[in-house]
């Protein structure tokens, strides 16, 4: 295990319009680890994810990405760091005016000096990784929700990121598609040693994909540990959340 963590936040604070959304978050993600951030809607977990990848500028504290504190950096200065991170958005956020091929090739065409043939090969390979074939010519509106998420993941993986951040990867999916996405995350972690942060309120999904879970409530981490440790946590809010989540799953 490397000494420098892949990602780290120190006393991370994010406030907007007088409302403090994150209240001093300390989180550490090691290389090769899949870390889950669990919490109810509005608990601040997506805001935490956006601070981790530099899409939001924290109002306090530090965010370290591969040994660089990105919190004080400007939008322009944060650009190179983003090439080392892949982000899979909640609703995939595919460019709806571009085909699947153009979406996956988007970053490669702008940041890598590659021939069209090499780009085509990478796009095909990434789509194969996520289990999609013969969809290059389709537009996002012609895909199902599960397929869109997988294309979003292929687009994130195209740039060979060191770390991939997932925002609610299974939300809005049926159990079969959700299971496939979970297996994909686990497989990528195992085969590519991919470091991942998964933000979700889907307890079942987090329990089967992550090595470490942090439970966020009202902008603070109230419990963290292995999935087993979280399952047996005595914190009343964790217990209440798990109970509600398992009732919902049934």
């Amino acid at each position: 295990m490397s000494k420098t963590p892949a990602l780290e936040t120190r006393q991370l604070v994010y406030a907007v319009d007088g409302k403090t959304i994150l209240k001093g978050i300390d989180l550490r993600v090691e290389y090769g680890e899949v870390v889950g951030i669990m919490g109810a809607s509005g608990s601040g977990k997506t805001t935490l994810l956006k601070c981790l990848c530099g899409l939001l500028k924290p109002t306090g504290g530090e965010v370290w990405v591969e040994g660089v504190n990105i919190a004080p950096l400007s939008e322009r200065e944060r650009m190179p760091m983003r090439l080392r991170l892949g982000i899979v958005f909640q609703y995939a956020a595919l460019f709806d005016f571009l085909t699947v091929y153009q979406n996956v090739a988007f970053g490669l065409e702008r940041h890598r000096r590659l021939s069209q043939q090499q780009i085509r090969a990478i796009v095909r390979e990434r789509l194969e990784w996520v289990g999609l074939e013969n969809v290059e010519h389709l537009y996002p509106s012609q895909l199902s929700g599960g397929m869109r998420k997988r294309v979003g993941l292929a687009r994130a993986l195209a740039m060979d990121p060191h770390i991939v951040l997932f925002d609610e990867p299974t939300s809005g999916l049926d159990p079969v598609n959700a299971y496939q996405i979970d297996r994909l995350i686990t497989r990528l972690n195992r085969e590519l040693n991919l470091t991942a942060v998964v933000v979700s309120h889907d307890v079942v999904s987090l329990m089967r994909t992550t090595h470490h879970i942090a439970m966020v409530d009202a902008g603070q981490i109230i419990a963290e540990g292995t999935p087993d440790a979280i399952r047996h946590s005595e914190h009343p809010k964790v217990q209440a959340f798990l109970k509600m989540a398992s009732a919902e799953a049934l």
């Binding site: 322009r76 983003r82 460019f95 970053g107 702008r110």
Partner: peptide
């Protein structure tokens, strides 16, 4: 529409202004 569907964030995430 791109803003509210996070496509603008997706551009930024791909290091494109």
């Amino acid at each position: 529409t791109m803003k509210i569907t996070e496509q603008v964030d997706a551009l930024r995430a791909l290091a494109v202004s």
